[in-house]
Amino acid sequence: MLEVEVNLKSSSAAGTPLTIGQLSRRAGIAASALRFYEAEGLLAGTRSAGGHRQYPRHALRRVAFIRAAQNVGLTLPQIKAALATLPDSRTPTKADWARLSAGWAPLLDARIAALQQLRERLTGCIGCGCLSLKACALYNPGDQACSQGSGARLLRIETQR
């Protein structure tokens, strides 16, 4: 028991890197997600002499930034672009978050407007029950192929060539 406590204390030292398992537990995210973030260039780690992934302690803040940006609705390429604006790929600060999030306001406004429009359409559909492929704006929004009739028209056209 004492050995475990000593190991936990030594791994929390400021200069000691975190293993992928430690980062996973601390960040509340699967190790596979951390490997994916690393493969996508969102997170950088090093390898120990034994070949194990290691991350600097500030990777916790970087993962928190990634998760918060995902919760806002940003895609991984958008998050990567935002992180690329930071000098030396450092961990985002509160000021960085304020600057970046101000740029995301139009994106959020557009999503809010789209959700409000969806809510209005949904209210109009209550009781309808049609789920028509030709008419239902919720079940089949923006359908342009319905004017050609029902069935797999596009598939049949391509197979005749």
Rank of each mutant, 00 (worst) to 15 (best):
I66C: 00
E40H: 12
Q54T: 02
A98R: 11
A102P: 07
A110D: 15
A69E: 02
V72R: 09
L43F: 08
A98T: 09
L18W: 13
Y37H: 09
G51D: 00
L43K: 01
A82D: 07
N71D: 12
A30H: 10
L108D: 03
T46E: 15
R57I: 07
L43Q: 10
T46N: 15
Q22A: 15
N7A: 13
A33Q: 12
L108I: 15
K94A: 13
L76Q: 04
Q54Y: 10
S101H: 05
D96R: 02
S10H: 09
L100R: 07
A84Y: 04
R26N: 02
I66A: 02
A69Q: 06
R67L: 06
S89D: 14
A69R: 03
E40K: 15
A110Q: 15
Q22N: 11
R67M: 05
S11R: 13
G41H: 05
I29R: 01
E40F: 09
L43N: 01
D109C: 07
I20D: 13
H52P: 01
N71M: 06
G103A: 08
A33L: 07
T93P: 04
R99I: 05
W104N: 04
P77M: 00
Y55S: 07
Q54D: 03
R67W: 05
A49L: 15
W104L: 14
A82C: 06
L107I: 13
R67T: 13
P56S: 06
A110G: 13
Q54M: 04
T85H: 05
A69N: 07
L86R: 03
N7H: 06
W97I: 11
P92S: 04
S32I: 01
W97L: 09
L86M: 05
L76P: 02
L74R: 08
A102E: 10
K94F: 08
G28I: 03
L100W: 06
K9P: 02
L8A: 12
R57S: 04
D88S: 08
S48W: 09
S48V: 00
R99V: 10
P87M: 00
H52W: 10
T75P: 01
G103T: 05
A30G: 09
Y37W: 11
R25D: 13
I66R: 01
I66E: 02
Y55T: 02
L86I: 04
A98K: 11
K80L: 12
I66F: 03
F36N: 10
R57N: 02
H52M: 01
S10M: 14
G41M: 06
D88V: 02
A84W: 06
A44N: 12
E40L: 10
G28H: 07
G51P: 05
P87S: 04
G103H: 04
F65G: 08
R61F: 10
S32N: 08
P106H: 12
A44K: 14
P106K: 12
A82H: 05
G45Y: 14
L76T: 13
V6T: 12
T91Y: 03
R47D: 02
S24M: 03
T93Q: 04
N7W: 05
R90G: 11
G50Y: 11
V63H: 01
